[in-house]
Design a protein around this nucleic acid. Structure first.
Lengths: 238, 238
DNA sequence: GTCAATAACGAACGAGCGTTCGTTTTAATT
DNA sequence: AATTAAAACGAACGCTCGTTCGTTATTGAC
């Protein structure tokens, strides 16, 4: 039942995770292009993907420096070596640029961490998969998640609601796993709400404070091991 | 040795903390005024404090809605019922407004959680004081800390460095307490670096996700109890 | 009631923003 | 080599921004 998919649950298996999931460089930009195909005026796929990559990466770079709002499209034009007019055939508008990035995340997230509640009965394993999947994905797509975390303010009302819903979703997912574990007698009794939010916080911290962890030479496997230890001590039965 | 100051280390003592520390409404605005006295053109203290309060609170409100960068001074003028010219006699410039708020935080923080490493020997107690002090202060000054967390991007290079240094300071402080506890044989052996950052993450989560905790009807005492339990399970000797 | 000193005012300015669109360059097809 | 469609270009437009400053209103001491 948990054959191939479960490989990356072993120790030290970030690379196994990567190869079991469609998030190579190529696949990411292809997915991104396909998701937004209809909004992009440029028609040749190869050209579009290549330029989109340049634009988005420049957006990440400039947003890191001064924030998305303070990044002007003239900055972006300079950084990408594209004219203003050319930019607009790819991004539609500045606002849409931000929204395209935001919308990509739940898309890729669901692709890599599918709902496991039917196929996998053990709550402990579902929790483990969620935690490791989360850290691994945010490790692969750090720039994307960091951008989304920092620049929530600039979304349209509709997309802001969507972002909040996704956020809420993953919190409720965690709560569900915890209460299942408790019901199945796998976990000790804890406050589901606080436990879920705390796990979420620790998971987010991995990409929000990435520079700090890099400086301390912490790998994502080490981080997973540490927070799993912390979480297990809370939920393990004595 | 730990007479009066230690009162708020008991259970359910948020109010005791508040009364043991100079952060009543009045005291906050007075401190803020005094810290920035030299930059404010208006000379009468009463007038200045009253107006500053209006300006800063409006800044918090508007920044929450659209972010500091997207908040124009015309928005601020409308919200405060003050003219553009009048605003400028208080804030100097839009950038300085942000910096005044940022600079206030380490000021008030050090006032409320002094360095306890000399007077208090027990690492466990120092850790407890730090955690509870942190949650209590960020509970009292939520708008300030939330603003500072969200709007780091708009600081001058000098003040950005300062903010990072303060951040780093509190992380190193935690690391120090943890390694002291280990050395004094109070704590079990854990990864200081990861433990410090994790605690920091949980502490920040209290004010970053405040709305969520409010909705879940979690009080700050309950939050403290929960994360202390989580932390203790990691550091307690078996 | 007078008169300085202080505070508030708001129109005006120049800079820079996001966006548009008529034109030019490039690439592919015949 | 000619034709045509696609893509890139960048000057120009209208607008809003942060900021200034000459003027008006308010205050409080005498």
């Amino acid at each position: 039942m948990d054959g191939d998919q479960a490989h990356w649950l072993g120790e030290n298996d970030f690379n196994l995770f990567r190869s079991s999931v469609p998030i190579s460089e190529q696949e990411i930009w292809l997915s991104f292009y396909q998701l937004h195909k209809d909004k992009i005026q440029v028609q040749k796929q190869n050209v579009a993907i290549e330029k989109l990559k340049i634009i988005i990466q420049a957006t990440f770079k400039l947003s890191n420096q001064k924030g998305f709002t303070l990044m002007s499209l003239r900055d972006l034009s300079r950084e990408t070596n594209m004219s203003m007019g050319s930019l607009y055939t790819y991004i539609g508008s500045k606002g849409q640029l931000a929204e395209m990035i935001h919308q990509f995340l739940p898309h890729i997230f669901n692709l890599c961490i599918p709902d496991l509640s039917n196929s996998i009965k053990s709550a402990r394993e579902r929790l483990q998969r969620f935690i490791r999947g989360h850290v691994f994905i945010t490790e692969c797509l750090h720039d994307w998640f960091f951008f989304a975390f920092m620049e929530t303010k600039h979304l349209s009302r509709a997309n802001k609601k969507l972002a909040m819903k996704n956020e809420l979703n993953s919190e409720q997912w965690l709560e569900k796993i915890i209460s299942d574990g408790e019901r199945l007698n796998e976990f000790a009794s804890v406050d589901r709400f606080l436990m879920g939010l705390s796990i979420k916080s620790l998971l987010q911290n991995w990409y929000v404070k990435r520079t700090t962890y890099r400086q301390g030479k912490v790998t994502c496997e080490q981080y997973i091991q540490f927070i799993e230890q912390m979480i297990n001590k809370m939920i393990e039965k004595r």
